[in-house]
């Protein structure tokens, strides 16, 4: 099912009320070409289930991993992603853009 922003924030609330550990990731800033606009959301639970998107699928995996730490620590953090360094196999955006993502726990 195609997830709309409504569903993402509604899911964040519903998952938390169900007693799950939940984090909300939000695109804070973008530079150059970026697939998802500022304000786009991704909601993640403690077991790595997620809904929504902050990129075209390039960095969601990394955001989910960070989100699981954020749920455990209760501390928000800011992540930055740029162009991937292919030699190092790091996470990046193949479109050449850069994005900044805020990951916060839902408490």
């Amino acid at each position: 099912m195609f997830a709309r922003e409504d569903d993402v924030l509604a899911a964040a609330e519903r998952w938390r009320r169900d007693g799950r550990g939940v984090a909300l990731a939000t695109v804070l800033e973008t530079w150059g070409s970026a697939p998802r606009p500022v304000g786009s959301h991704l909601v993640i639970d403690e077991t790595g289930n997620f809904l929504g998107s902050v990129s075209g699928g390039c960095v969601e995996g990394a955001v989910v991993n960070e989100a699981i730490d954020v749920i455990a620590s209760g501390q928000p953090r800011t992540l930055e992603f740029g162009v991937a360094d292919e030699a190092a196999w790091t996470v990046g955006l193949s479109c050449g853009g850069r994005i900044c993502v805020y990951v916060e726990p839902v408490m």
């Binding site: 924030l9 964040a12 609330e13 009320r17 909300l24 916060e104 726990p105 408490m107």
Partner: peptide
């Protein structure tokens, strides 16, 4: 985000009222 704030935010959205969450 606190759950009560998220719930208020979603409640405003549900009744089609414009609003803003400010995060310092």
């Amino acid at each position: 985000m606190r759950l009560d704030l998220l719930a208020s935010f979603n409640a405003e959205r549900a009744v089609r009222r414009a609003c803003v969450v400010v995060t310092a």
